[in-house]
């Protein structure tokens, strides 16, 4: 909050600080409380799944963390640094990444150009007037990311002709650009075929172990395979937190999931 503290905050970022620390975050849309009093702590390298029915506030939570809009109250710390008031691009430059539930891609550009753009955004080359040359470092890392998500065959195709599943993979490649420290995945498996889900799980579990993430996922199978802890949300509040097995067994959670009282 106060300016002199930031140096100490940054020092602590290398040490024991949590990857993500939300304290009493709330978001009001007019009179509607999309989020109320959310407190979440995620350790560096931790992989967390966020479950909850539609309208539980999962995507709103992501939007508040990445700065797509500012929360109404509460504080957000990223590796010890208070980023509550930061604009989105400042948070991204500090190593936070996200994917979108509905693919937000640049449909006029090719797969490679989309990833290249993502790599530019987190580098100093973002204002470069010089076109990438063949040995361009950013372009090389973009090509590598395209390979990581198995899109190398489609790298020169315009995004508009990609299949839905390929677009989801491209979203992930873009979130991996630069040196991400923490990633927010917003329903990456939605609409994927069983084979594509398998590939997705493979990509997520294959990420370097220091790279923590939060994943929003409806599919319990996927969520439980890629996450070591689970946060259950309901009506803008945290409903349950725990290990995947505990959450699965929890009678209240089962009632909520199977009862379908709010669709």
């Amino acid at each position: 909050m106060n300016a002199p503290a930031t140096v100490a905050d940054r020092l602590s970022a290398t040490g024991t600080a949590n990857a993500l620390e939300l304290r009493g975050v709330s978001k009001l849309f007019g009179a509607l409380a999309a989020l109320s009093d959310i407190s979440i702590t995620v350790r560096p390298g931790e992989r967390r799944a966020v479950l909850g029915s539609n309208g539980a506030g999962k995507t709103t939570l992501f939007n508040c963390i990445t700065g797509d809009f500012l929360p109404t109250g509460g504080s957000i710390r990223f590796f010890g640094e208070d980023i509550s008031e930061f604009p989105a691009h400042e948070r991204i430059r500090r190593g936070l990444r996200r994917t979108y539930q509905i693919s937000l891609l640049f449909t006029g550009l090719t797969v490679l150009d989309n990833v290249y753009l993502a790599c530019c955004g987190v580098s100093r080359g973002r204002f470069s007037f010089i076109r990438p040359r063949r040995n361009d470092a950013l372009m090389a890392s973009a090509e590598d990311l395209v390979r990581v998500v198995h899109l190398e065959d489609a790298k020169d195709t315009p995004v508009s002709v990609l299949s839905y599943g390929q677009q989801r993979q491209l979203e992930i490649a873009m979130a991996l650009s630069g040196a991400p420290r923490f990633i927010l995945f917003d329903e990456p498996a939605a609409g994927l075929s069983p084979t594509e889900r398998g590939e997705l799980v493979e990509i997520l579990t294959g990420l370097p172990s220091h790279m923590g993430y939060i994943i929003i996922e409806h599919d319990m199978d996927v969520a439980l395979r890629v996450a070591e802890s689970v946060t259950m949300m309901h009506n803008g509040r945290i409903f349950k937190e725990g290990k995947p097995a505990e959450i699965e067994e929890d009678p209240e959670v089962q009632a909520l999931y199977l009862g379908g009282d709010d669709g």
Binding site: I92, L109, Y116, R126, F129
Partner: peptide
């Protein structure tokens, strides 16, 4: 013409198409 394919021009077209996404890629729109 050259600039349209350089990072600056590409990013500008990205800002035109989707400013929110560009911010989420680290660009100061």
């Amino acid at each position: 013409l050259y600039l349209s394919r350089a990072p600056f021009g590409l990013a500008l077209q990205g800002v035109r198409d989707n400013p929110r996404r560009m911010a989420a890629l680290g660009f100061n729109v």
